[in-house]
Design a protein around this nucleic acid. Structure first.
Length: 865
DNA sequence: GTGTTTGACCATCCTTTGTACACT
DNA sequence: AAGTGTACTTTGGATGGTCAAACA
């Protein structure tokens, strides 16, 4: 079956369609009526056609199969293939027809829902099939993709800017001082700890968690520091306000802290909806980039909702709280020790939302148990409503987890640098809103449960920013395709990263190890070295990739940055060496991506100044189908399969050595079979030769009898064929100076000649011009009017009179105020040399009119344009 | 829900070394 | 006679990436 839409179109004449009046039954696929859009044949002329086509619109392949079946029978239906198509309308015609969306109006078919009777034709409607099942999906065009990428980038930049604003607000001394004034005295000792650890932060986080609540999803449109101050005063606010307050508090206590944001950006690819991303749901339906909780200006302003409310809920319903308690206890055992399936998490989330909506609470015990487990709050706790701030009726529009909800997603938190963690210190995830420490491994799952995509996690400090996504995602290979291209993102972040590094980097003295020796940037002594925290963190994030689990599906290896499967190699790739084998995926060995080598032909390597070592066997041999052979095969269909015309031998980089080029001897340039030198790059030039890229220099070399070779620098396609492109010549180095000097000399000589030639030309043309004037005057005197051209008569020249080289003439007129022309007058008394002087110049519309006059009275007028 | 296969579509890469004729 | 410029039938096949659909 021909699949191409643009295949040959065959018109079907109307009389080919045999429509029998006696209940020609054509199945329709749309129960809802013909008013819906349905494919209609573009050249539809009869109902019979349109009906048949309407049926075909669902699935052309399927229909064709049906038609084919129908046409085989002997029943009365055989004439129509059982489906209303006449046999004369063969399948190819049907398949090749063009289709377009058209509409037929239901009003015409009011008679029955399932049947329509028009002009004696019964149309049977099949209620079982529905057009709604037919997805009208179009491939995104290049333009769509570009637009989507641009929007993605712009949104990223906006969110980055937003993050910086918040970060700056976290440094506000007034806010910091106010926060410090609230902190109990015993907690202030935290700032004196030399080796800070995550555990030591726990009391402070618990205190913060018990004093500040998230009560709104989005902020009103106001200056963020003001909103933050207001939140501080009220002790409740939006996610980002409370998260920012936590960061401000840490900074106030002289801890190195960052404000971290999960940038929930619109998808990079067009048409990617929530179901398409591996993490399910970057975009809710009909949600614009300013419609999610990370918005800067958001019209959506629901009543107070706390995304996570583990510790302060009072028991209103003991029974229910017990249920929850046991439920939470279950989570303690199973819940987040392993990542939950998204469906389960979402189900639980939805259930919890429903429970929350009926305003019942979780016991403090249960939450405390969870907190002590130091785990990320389950989706059950996410989105829970704060009792103290909400009316118990809870009629507020709390979205469910399934659908548009991103409520409860971890969008903002803090990172605190704990020098006491590990031997070299560590950035610790601190989610004070949820009272969590070190929960970075659970962020991804929590975000997924709340239908928020984790693609960019950015830490802000010192008015700068740093991408720390790697810390929060377990499977980078699933995220990477949904992120903007790395060079652009790196470029954007580069200056911000520097600012961030300055604010948080600081020098750390570290014990010396072999690992460090490899990673260190600066070393001071052999026993210890100094590296910045920022660089160490970079290394930590980079090395996290090596701890990612091997993907379990083969597709994931297709573009995996670290691992490769042999089956996804391209024609010009090979695994070398084939060890180590890192594991197996469905029985196929997994290799390092770094073992994937690119193969090229000898000629291609030569262009890069490399050649294959002697006695190396090709790493791969490809069959080549020669074009001429192929054409021959095509012409001679009956011929047996022949030799396809040779092979292509490919070699890898490990089989190469530097190209050993020929030497120029005795002023002779070594040439190839075609008498030229292929200059793909300077590396390809034979030793002792130079490439002179000057126009027509070959003529000079020939003239001086210097050996040369045309330099072929590439190919271009002209008129359907490949044509070599030449640029200059290749000569022995010793002739370079001689040639260049000769070239300069020749150039000067040519310029002089050209100038002289031009001057001669000018004089010649002037001479011709004036001669013609004199000749005309003489003829007038002799044979023309009876009024001889007496002295004083004006001869007018216009541009038309000498339009061959008017500009030259004009220039001459302007430059030379006095032109002496020797004119031999046949007139009796005025046999003298005219001396023209410009006497008058008046402006015209398109130039000027110059009048020149000789002393004898003879004058000439010249129009200058 | 996830992964695999298949086919369609699209963009990009790769290929690669004239000739006849008019005019200067 | 030699050199130069230009039109000529405006490549087109292979390949890889992406996507959708069907299916397991």
């Amino acid at each position: 079956m021909r699949g191409r839409r643009d295949s040959k179109k065959q018109k079907v004449s109307e009389d080919q369609v045999h429509v029998s009046g006696d209940a020609e039954k054509l199945q329709r696929t749309n129960q809802s009526g013909l008013s819906q859009k349905m494919p209609v044949k573009r050249h539809t002329a009869s109902l019979g056609k349109s009906c048949g086509v309407a049926h075909s619109g669902v699935n052309r392949k399927q229909d064709v199969a049906e038609h084919e079946e129908g046409s085989e029978g002997d029943t009365p239906g055989e004439q129509y293939g059982g489906n209303g198509f006449p046999i004369s309308m063969n399948m190819e015609e049907i398949n090749d027809s063009d289709w377009e969306d058209g509409s037929a109006h239901a009003s015409k078919y009011k008679g029955s829902d399932s049947e329509a009777f028009i002009n004696g034709i019964t149309v049977e409607l099949n209620p079982l099939q529905d057009f709604s099942h037919r997805k009208i999906k179009r491939r995104a065009s290049t333009e769509d993709k570009e637009v989507a990428e641009l929007v993605h980038k712009v949104h990223l930049l906006c969110l980055l800017a937003r993050g910086r604003i918040i970060d700056k607000a976290c440094d506000d001394p007034l806010i910091q001082a106010s926060l410090l004034s609230l902190v109990p005295a015993q907690l202030l000792k935290l700032s004196e700890i030399q080796k800070l650890t995550g555990v030591s932060l726990h009391p402070l986080i618990s205190w913060f968690h018990s004093h500040f609540k998230v009560t709104r999803l989005s902020s009103e449109e106001k200056f963020f520091p003001s909103a933050m101050a207001q939140a501080l005063e009220a002790k409740h606010g939006t996610l980002e306000e409370i998260a920012a307050l936590s960061v401000a508090l840490f900074r106030a206590m002289n801890l190195t802290a960052r404000f971290v944001s999960l940038l929930d950006v619109v998808p990079l690819k067009p048409g990617v909806d929530k179901g398409d991303l591996p993490f399910k749901g970057a975009q809710g339906k009909a949600k614009g980039i300013f419609k999610n909780p990370t918005v800067m200006i958001d019209s959506f302003n629901p009543k107070p909702v706390s995304p996570a409310q583990p510790s302060l809920c009072s028991d209103k319903n003991d029974e229910d709280s017990k249920k929850l308690k046991s439920s939470d206890a279950t989570n303690e055992i199973n819940g987040f020790q392993e990542l939950k399936r998204k469906g389960d998490a979402e189900y639980e989330m939805q259930m919890e939302m429903a429970l929350s909506a009926t305003a019942f609470e979780v016991s403090e015990d249960a939450v405390a148990a969870k907190a002590t487990n130091d785990s990320f709050p389950s989706p059950k706790t996410l989105g829970r409503i704060t009792t103290g701030l909400l009316p118990s009726s809870s009629s507020q529009p709390v979205a469910t987890a399934v659908g548009a909800s991103k409520i409860g997603a971890p969008l903002h938190w803090a990172e605190v640098y704990c020098s006491g963690e590990n031997s070299i210190g560590k950035w610790v995830h601190v989610d004070a809103i949820n009272g969590l420490l070190g929960g970075e491994e659970r962020v991804e799952a929590a975000a997924a449960a709340c239908k928020t995509s984790l693609r960019y996690v950015v830490a802000f400090a010192g008015y700068g920013a740093k991408d720390v996504t790697r810390r929060y995602c377990r499977r980078w290979y699933r995220i990477a395709p949904h992120r903007v291209n790395t060079p652009w993102w790196d470029e954007v972040l580069a200056p911000l990263k520097e600012l961030e590094s300055r604010a948080t980097g600081g020098s750390i003295k570290l014990p010396f190890t072999r690992l460090h020796q490899e990673m260190v940037v600066e070393s001071s002594t052999k026993s210890e070295f100094v590296a910045t925290g920022s660089i160490l963190e970079d290394m930590e994030l980079e090395t996290r990739a090596f701890y990612e689990p091997l993907p379990t599906n083969q597709q994931a290896y297709r573009n995996h940055p670290l691992y490769a499967l042999e089956r996804w190699l391209t024609k010009y790739q090979v695994i070398h060496p084939k060890n180590p084998i890192l594991g197996f995926c469905n029985g196929f060995p997994v290799y390092r991506r770094s073992c994937v080598q690119i193969l090229k032909t000898k000629e291609k390597w030569m262009r890069e100044g490399l050649q294959v070592r002697h006695n190396e066997f090709p790493a791969k041999v490809l069959k080549r189908i020669d074009k001429s052979v192929k054409e021959q095969l095509h012409e001679d269909d009956d011929s047996e399969e022949t030799n396809s015309g040779g092979t292509i031998e490919l070699f890898g980089k490990w089989q190469l050595e530097p190209l050993s080029l020929l030497h120029a001897v005795n002023g002779i340039v070594p040439k190839n079979d075609r008498g030229q030198v292929d200059v793909w790059s300077e590396k390809c030039l034979p030793h002792g030769t130079v490439h002179l890229k000057l126009p027509r220099i070959f003529a000079l070399a020939k003239k001086l009898e210097i050996d040369y070779a045309p330099a072929m620098v590439g190919f271009e396609f002209r008129n359907g064929r490949s044509v070599p492109v030449y640029d200059g010549i290749v000569v022995c180095s010793e002739f370079k100076d001689i040639l260049l000097e000769a070239y300069a000399e020749e150039k000067g000589r040519k310029e002089t000649e050209e100038r002289k030639r031009n001057e001669r030309e000018v004089i010649s043309r002037w001479y011709q011009l004036l001669s013609s004037i004199i000749t005309r005057q003489r003829l007038n005197n002799c044979y023309g009017s009876r009024q001889p051209n007496s002295p004083g008569k004006v001869v007018t020249l216009t541009s038309g009179a000498s339009n061959e080289n008017l500009s030259t003439s004009q220039q001459h007129v302007e430059l030379e105020q006095h032109i002496a022309v020797s004119v031999s007058h046949s007139t009796e008394e005025h046999d003298h040399e005219h001396m023209f002087v410009t006497v008058k110049k008046c402006s015209l519309e398109n130039g000027s009119l110059v009048t020149k006059r000789c002393q004898c009275g003879f004058s000439v007028q010249v129009e200058e344009i």
